[in-house]
Nucleic acid binder design. Sequence first.
DNA 1: GGTTATGTACACCGATCCGTGTTCTTAACA
DNA 2: TGTTAAGAACACGGATCGGTGTACATAACC
Lengths: 200, 200
Amino acid sequence: MAELEKGPQGLRRGRGARERILSASQQLFRDQGINQTGMDQLCAVAQVSKRTAYQHFTGKDELVAEYLRRFDPDVMPGVFDRTDLTPRERLLAAFEAPTTATQDDITPLCPFIAASVEIPDHRHPARQCVQDYKKAVAARLAETAREAGATNPEQLGEQLALLLDGASARNRALNTETFPTAAAIAAVLIDNAIPTPAQR
Amino acid sequence: MAELEKGPQGLRRGRGARERILSASQQLFRDQGINQTGMDQLCAVAQVSKRTAYQHFTGKDELVAEYLRRFDPDVMPGVFDRTDLTPRERLLAAFEAPTTATQDDITPLCPFIAASVEIPDHRHPARQCVQDYKKAVAARLAETAREAGATNPEQLGEQLALLLDGASARNRALNTETFPTAAAIAAVLIDNAIPTPAQR
DNA sequence: GGTTATGTACACCGATCCGTGTTCTTAACA
DNA sequence: TGTTAAGAACACGGATCGGTGTACATAACC
């Protein structure tokens, strides 16, 4: 904080404004929610002039949408790409992934669910991002389910996606880690959906 | 609307202020969300003086909490009390109940999940209501699961509760009715959890 | 060098937010 | 009848909201 002052001659926060804004959004929207985060605070955290923010984004709405779009590249980060696991193990791993580094705090609410609740208007651009993302996750789960040999991969993908969202919502509502519960259900569903259980 | 005017001599909206406020809350908080509903609008819809509202509730926070508490008496309205159904059928009926009268619009988001997302501070009184309600639902499900002869009723109750919340969240996120998917999972879990399937 | 994008600083706007103070009216109740 | 509690009407307050206008500074690129 000392060497980052706005000293008249010193280091400008400089060219990376857009990145700083999106990075601050990620932190603040997650910690406080979208509606509880004002543009003033956001700009302060991002160390960006308010004017600059509105040169990069036409408004808060667009910023929120862009904040969500940035998650797209890492749809379920690294879970589906783990070649060291069998398809079946990958499906189960999706329920352990959310467990973050520090072991005692619970998994935060999925930012897409949060956005869909905080933004009531389902024609808001951000709501489209939510829909796209949720469909993408279900599709990847279905794809992996197909690799695992499920008889009805689409159905299994949809079911597992529902479990993920249920666990996320209940984590928030109850302040308790419920992903293990979801994982247990997933195991049952997966066994039920694959005709020839591998080695058993 | 015609005969309800504030006519100087005519019918006063009169003594039922508190009820009108809570009734308006129920409608507006569901349709617009809590944060998107201002006290001014709420009082206008309730046909209540703003001053009166603040004589019944110390603030919006308390009003929100009371709004949630009013759901408690009807925890899963009528589903658990249907004596015409077997315990097993009652468990399954919980996934059809949310389907409201008009057949084409999707089930609205659970107001408790909505509140837990809209109110980030988990020490807010409303958040306690959310926790209580969610625990109560899981408990009633577990109770019914016990009646149905489940080997681990608490676990089944927790699992079914997760399915309900998952379907509710995805309904909002995807704008698609997903309770049938949850019901299908529930059927599998129930069959899996009850040792002696009745007639089969 | 000069030009042009990028960013800063800061005042400012109307709207809306939650909440209060004040005065008056009416219904219930004794 | 008089008293009291419940409510209405309405202006007002400070805070914050998303968003803008303007003038100035700096970095990059030619």
